[in-house]
Design a binder for these strands. Structure first.
Lengths: 188, 188
DNA sequence: GATCGCATGTAAGTGGTTACATGATTTA
DNA sequence: TAAATCATGTAACCACTTACATGCGATC
C-alpha cells in the first residue's frame, strides 16, 4: 500500500470513529445500514485500513471484553486523525463517472425485443422501489428518536437526497415503460 | 485474466461494435461522448479486452489505411459475439452499491461549519448543472438529426434518465442550501 | 448439535487506471 | 515548429472484493 496517499475509504472510517469509537465489525454494520445508499465496505478492506490508520497515529485502540464472542478491539480517533479528517472534509469533491449497467443495457435496447426491455425497466424499478422502502423506514426511525445529535440534520439530508433520486427514477421508469408500450414497429 | 468470465465492459465494447465496426480509438470516443453519463473506459482496458474478444472469436478485425496517422484496426462483431452479447442483454441487472464521496462528506457535515457544507452543496450543484447542459445539448443534437436509426429511441431514453436525475438533484441541492441557511445553532 | 451473531483477520484474485512509449499527419 | 488529433499498445500499480480460516457464546 502506498504509504503517502490517503483514500476516501480511510476517511469514511475516520468519520465513523469521530462520531463514536467502534470495532471493525461495528464499522461494517454502519456501512450496511446508515451509509448503505451511498457507501459500502468489506471486512477485507476495513481491517487492513484500520491497522494502517493506527500505525500512522490517526486512531488509538483499546481491547474490551465482549459480551458475546472473543475480546474486541475498539478504535477511536486521535487529534492527528481528526485534523487530517477535517482537512479532507474541506476539499471539494471531483466528479466521477459512474458505471451503470442498467443504462448500458437500455442503451443497447435495439438488439433486444421490446418485451425484454420492458422487463429490464420493471426489474430496475422494483429494485429502486425496494431501496426506497428501506430508506424511508430508516428515515422514520431516526426521526422518531427525536435526536438532538448534532449529526442528525446531515444524516437526514443524505437520506432525503437518496429518496428524491429514487422517486425521480421510479417515475421515469413508469413513463418509459408507457412510452415503450405505445411504441410500434421494431423487433416485437 | 480469467478466461471463462466475461465482464460488463466487454459487452459494452461488443455492443458498440454491434452498432457499427470501430477501432479501439473510436470506442474510447464513444465512451466519452455518447455513454459519458453512465459509462467510461480507458485505453489501458479497451485494447487488452479487444484482443481477448478477438482471441475468443467474438470479433473480427480488418486493417484499414488511415487518413491521419498510422494504419488502423477496425473491429466488428461476429455471429458468436452477437449471440453472447444478446444472452448478456437478457440477464437482469443486479443492484450495485455506489460510492458517492459527496454524500459521504455531507453525512459528516456536523464536523464542518455550515458555510463549508453550503459550499460543498453549491460545488456539487454546479457540477451536476454542467453535466446537465452537456447532456441536453447532446439530446438536442441527436434529435435534430431526425434519426431513423433503430437505436435512437433507446439512446433518448438513457439521456432522459440522466437529465431527470440531474434535475432532481439540482432541485434537492437548492432546497438543502436553503434549509441550511435557515438553520441556526451548531458550528457557525 | 446446528446455526446464528459477534469478532478479527489474511491470501488470492479482480478489474480496472495511470503513465508512459511510439509515431504519423494536420493545423495553428 | 509546436501542438493537436489520430492511433495502438504495455507495465506498473491500485483499491478493493471474495473466499476462507478461526473461534466464542447464545439461541433454536
Amino acid at each position: 500500500m502506498n504509504p503517502s496517499v490517503r483514500r476516501d475509504t480511510e476517511f469514511a472510517i475516520l468519520g465513523l470513529l469521530a462520531i463514536s469509537p467502534k470495532t471493525g465489525y461495528d464499522i461494517k454494520r454502519c456501512a450496511e445500514t446508515t451509509l448503505a445508499h451511498f457507501w459500502n465496505e468489506s471486512y477485507g478492506n476495513i481491517y487492513p485500513l484500520l491497522r494502517r490508520l493506527h500505525q500512522d497515529g490517526l486512531t488509538k485502540k483499546k481491547a474490551v471484553a465482549s459480551e458475546k464472542g472473543p475480546e474486541k478491539i475498539v478504535y477511536s480517533i486521535t487529534a492527528d486523525g481528526m485534523s487530517e479528517f477535517l482537512e479532507w472534509l474541506q476539499q471539494p469533491v471531483e466528479p466521477v463517472s459512474p458505471k451503470n449497467t442498467f443504462l448500458l443495457k437500455l442503451f443497447f435496447g435495439q438488439f433486444s425485443n421490446r418485451e425484454s426491455v420492458v422487463q429490464l425497466l420493471q426489474h430496475y424499478r422494483d429494485q429502486i422501489s425496494q431501496m426506497q422502502t428501506f430508506l424511508s423506514h430508516k428515515l422514520r426511525e431516526i426521526r422518531s428518536q427525536e435526536s438532538t445529535d448534532p449529526g442528525f440534520p446531515y444524516w437526514e439530508l443524505t437520506m432525503d437526497c437518496g429518496l428524491n433520486s429514487m422517486k425521480s427514477i421510479t417515475r421515469w421508469c413508469d413513463r418509459s415503460i408507457e412510452k415503450l408500450e405505445k411504441m410500434s414497429g421494431g423487433k416485437e
